[in-house]
């Protein structure tokens, strides 16, 4: 159940996320994206772990939106930024399945109050480059100086977050990783993590606490930035169009980690140790990029929601997962998107 106070907090979050260089008619973050379709087929093993429809082995149509995380309405593909991959599995059952993933392995904050605090602290600020003297001081302190400003980079997305991370241990890993996340050569050449824990039920009733990751079959490949520090602003959309032309495909393996006793199931700032048992749950094949019209009418109006889950996949008690549900609803309404999957439902 969504309470009124949840709504108020979620509304505040959405408000804070809107950047001055954004567009209120668009998504407040992950503003620039592209729609791709294809299908998912579960592996033979998947059904042993989950009785849910996506994992029974049928060919399931999917609609995916790849995006840059920034809320800047102007595309800057080459800038260092988190990328998103929102996948909707179109199911026969009453409820579809949205799996929302990003290139960062964990989220910044563990609960609602800290998220609000973080969003306020991490608001973009006017860009201040490091002075040469500051850089020399950093070298002498064995620190890595702040990266140079990209052309036209007027707002700094990181400074507030870095200050916040110096006060809160939980935010250190995501902030550190974000600082060096860079840009991929293609949306199809990055790994995307769903970050939250979900609970799946096996046919024999055994429940498992799990986390999902999309692994690109082509491999993960970051894009080097040239010596002139002038990254391309617009290449990712064309790249995926080129990649999927002439009946070519791009594929992702869906990997699922099994949580163990004492694992952080409700804290998405903590990635699980790398040696949890990993199950190959299936293969996603992308084969079509939506044309400009469909992009406009379908993808930009589409309302994904990380809590849109079919029978057999339950959300954990992760407070971030639950507040995201409300925040996505609000954002969807504000930009007059298509009916949110939950709207009027409960």
């Amino acid at each position: 159940m969504t309470t009124n106070s949840d709504k108020a907090v979620a509304k505040e979050m959405v408000d804070i996320m809107h950047r001055p260089d954004g567009d209120p008619k668009l998504r407040p973050i992950h503003t620039n994206g592209i729609g791709v379709t294809g299908f998912f087929k579960a592996s033979e093993t998947a059904a042993e772990y989950s009785n849910s429809e996506p994992f029974q082995g049928n060919k399931i149509p999917v609609t995916i939106r790849f995006s840059n995380a920034s809320g800047n309405k102007t595309r800057h593909d080459g800038w260092s930024d988190i990328r998103g991959m929102a996948t909707r599995f179109h199911l026969n059952g009453p409820q579809d399945f949205d799996l929302i993933a990003m290139t960062l392995q964990e989220f910044f904050t563990p609960d609602v109050p800290s998220t609000l605090e973080f969003l306020k602290a991490a608001r973009p600020t006017p860009y201040h480059s490091a002075t040469p003297l500051q850089k020399i001081r950093d070298y002498l302190s064995l620190k890595v100086p702040k990266r140079n400003r990209y052309p036209h980079e007027d707002l700094s997305p990181d400074d507030g977050g870095k200050k916040y991370a110096n006060k809160h241990k939980f935010a250190q890993l995501p902030i550190f990783q974000t600082a060096s996340i860079g840009a991929p050569v293609s949306y199809a050449r990055a790994a995307y993590h769903a970050v939250h824990t979900f609970i799946i039920t096996a046919p024999n009733g055994k429940r498992n606490w799990v986390r999902f990751t999309w692994q690109p079959v082509a491999g993960v490949r970051p894009r080097p930035i040239g010596p002139d520090n002038k990254p391309d602003d617009d290449y990712l959309n064309q790249e995926i169009r080129d990649r999927l032309s002439d009946r070519e495909t791009a594929r992702f393996t869906l990997m699922m980690s099994l949580g163990e006793q004492e694992d952080e199931v409700n804290n998405c700032t903590k990635p699980w140790p790398l040696h949890r048992t990993r199950i190959v749950m299936g293969m996603l094949t992308l084969n079509h990029v939506l044309d400009a019209k469909a992009q406009e009418s379908k993808i930009e109006k589409m309302s994904y929601n990380p809590c849109l889950l079919p029978e057999g996949i339950e959300p954990s008690d992760d407070p971030i997962l639950h507040i995201r549900r409300t925040a996505y609803e609000i954002s969807s309404k504000e930009r007059h998107a298509n009916r949110c999957p939950f709207a009027g439902g409960q």
């Binding site: 302190s141 064995l142 620190k143 110096n166 241990k169 250190q172 902030i175 550190f176």
Partner: peptide, 18 residues
């Protein structure tokens, strides 16, 4: 212990060097 003061994130590279 884990409740000790928070480190300045920018010192991580130096801590590795040392």
């Amino acid at each position: 212990g884990p409740d000790g003061p928070v480190h300045d994130l920018s010192t991580l590279p130096r801590n590795l060097v040392l």
